[in-house]
C-alpha cells in the first residue's frame, strides 16, 4: 500500500471513530499506532514547517527546547538537554515515526520516558481543570511540528 492510500484510509477510519467537532481530525484516543509508527496524518492537511517551528519553540505550545537542543534554533535562548539533541533527527526517524513520537512517546519509547505525550489524553493524576480533555498540541500543530522536524536532516 502506498503511503497516500494508507493515509487516506487512516483518515477515513479516524473520521468514523472521531466524535471531535473537527470532522477530519483524528481524536487523541483514536490515533492508530502501527509497527511503522503513526502512518496517517492526524488532520489530512499537510503540516506547515514554519508554523511547526513556532509551536516547537513556544513555551505555551510544544516548548520542545525545554528538553531538546536544536542547532537550527541557535538564535533562541536556553536549550535543555533532558532529551537528545534533535539535530539531524529526520535522518534517524521517518515521518510516521516522528508523528508517533510527538503524539505519544510513551507508546514508542517506554512508559518511563519523561517526554510528555503531546496529543494524548493519557495524562498524570490530579489534572488541572483547565486542561481536562485537552491535549498539549492540537492535531494540526502535531502535523506542523512533524513537518518542521522533517527539515532537520544531517
Amino acid at each position: 500500500m502506498t503511503r497516500r492510500m494508507k493515509f487516506t484510509l487512516g483518515a477515513m477510519a479516524a473520521f468514523a471513530l472521531s466524535t471531535a467537532a473537527m470532522a477530519s481530525e483524528v481524536a487523541p484516543e483514536a490515533v492508530e499506532f502501527t509497527d511503522d509508527g503513526v502512518v496517517a496524518s492526524l488532520t489530512g492537511t499537510a503540516g506547515d514547517p514554519v508554523a511547526g517551528a513556532e509551536a516547537f519553540k513556544n513555551r505555551k505550545d510544544g516548548n520542545c527546547l525545554a528538553c531538546h537542543a536544536n542547532s537550527d534554533m541557535s538564535g533562541e535562548l536556553f536549550h535543555g538537554d533532558v532529551g537528545p539533541s534533535l539535530d539531524g533527527v529526520a535522518s534517524r526517524w521517518d515521518e510516521a515515526q516522528l508523528r508517533a513520537i510527538v503524539t505519544n512517546s510513551k507508546k514508542i519509547f517506554t512508559d518511563e520516558t519523561i517526554m510528555p505525550g503531546f496529543y494524548s489524553l493519557d495524562v498524570g493524576e490530579h489534572l488541572a481543570e483547565a486542561f481536562v480533555g485537552k491535549t498539549i498540541l492540537t492535531a494540526q500543530q502535531v502535523e506542523d511540528v512533524v513537518a518542521y522536524l522533517g527539515t532537520l536532516k544531517d
Binding site: 513555551r59 516548548n63 527546547l65 525545554a66 528538553c67 535562548l77 536556553f78 536549550h79 535543555g80 538537554d81 533532558v82 518511563e112 519523561i114 510528555p116 505525550g117 493519557d122 495524562v123 498524570g124 493524576e125 490530579h126 489534572l127 488541572a128 486542561f131 485537552k134 498539549i136
Partner: peptide, 27 residues
Amino acid sequence: TRTGQLNLACASCHETAMGKFIRADHL
C-alpha cells in the same frame, strides 16, 4: 506519582533528569 497534563513526577525532574538542563534551569 506522575501528575498533570505533562505527566511528570518529582522523580522525573529531580532524579531521572537530575544534573540536566530544562530550558535555563539546571535540575
